[in-house]
Design a binder for these strands. Sequence first.
DNA 1: ACGTGCAACTTGAACCGTCAAGCATAGAAT
DNA 2: ATTCTATGCTTGACGGTTCAAGTTGCACGT
Lengths: 159, 159
Amino acid sequence: MTEPRWLNADERRAWLAMLSINTMLPAALDNQLHTAGKVSLFDYNVMAMLSEAEGRFLPMSELAARTSSSLSRLSHVVSKLEKRGWLERRPHPGDARVTTAHLSDDGMATLVALAPGHVEAVRNKFLDALTDRDVNDLARIGEKIVARLDDDHWILRES
Amino acid sequence: MTEPRWLNADERRAWLAMLSINTMLPAALDNQLHTAGKVSLFDYNVMAMLSEAEGRFLPMSELAARTSSSLSRLSHVVSKLEKRGWLERRPHPGDARVTTAHLSDDGMATLVALAPGHVEAVRNKFLDALTDRDVNDLARIGEKIVARLDDDHWILRES
DNA sequence: ACGTGCAACTTGAACCGTCAAGCATAGAAT
DNA sequence: ATTCTATGCTTGACGGTTCAAGTTGCACGT
């Protein structure tokens, strides 16, 4: 039981900024997406990840990994999006335990319609605050943090 | 209606990392705090902000600003913490519209008990991934992003 | 072939956050 | 004085997230 090492000035600045960003940034983007199309940032992301996958489908667990979410959370959301006709669940041919989520044409159309406004918001609320150098530094630092939280997170595989 | 500027490689890396951190980091810290004392990261933060204030109290709106939250969210949480005996609401002497939230001795004791484990988790899940230089860069970049989201956010006042 | 364990989900309940509405007070305008 | 607008906050309903528990199917050892 030793005395904990409290945060120094820079650590505190970094931590408080991170904390504020964590609540304000998703709120701002959620807001834009919700007024543009009654979709949350998470909903959007689920569909975006499917749209980039081969054949526009992924097993639930892979989709959960790519959205950094729990399987439970994902399952609820997929049910919701399925009711709207944007997604479809299908059994996996090779393994009866796995369910694959497929992005429907309607889902793709919705995503395409929402994408420009969303990218604009990402720039407006986030990237436009930064220089090219900042963006590069942030990518490097951000990936280190991701690695710390999950050492084989999918975003670390590509680069 | 011009073609939107899609993200380049570094922008995409920074954005995806930010997105993953936004979901995984609060989850990890929430987890630690919840198993240590049935408290959420937000609950902890509310109490921490009060503990650092003069006299251990703040008006609701100031507390909302310091936790980057809506007044509504804060009000619900303060009610919850009040029921646990950690906080107390009092009317403001000078302005009958404002309510002040006071951290009780019990609340302070709870916070003191939780603090070492929490700081340890912040280091373990976040700061330990970074060099001193990274921490400094992140503080600078993070504050730019915060400024973009709210140009007179309280964390920008001190520095 | 059978049991044991694990992996991939799904579900319902409890909890938390957001949103829209409402209320009381303060301050400004006339 | 009286109205008008803005500020500060609370509340309840709704929808989303988490948590614990349960189901099904695969893989492996015996």
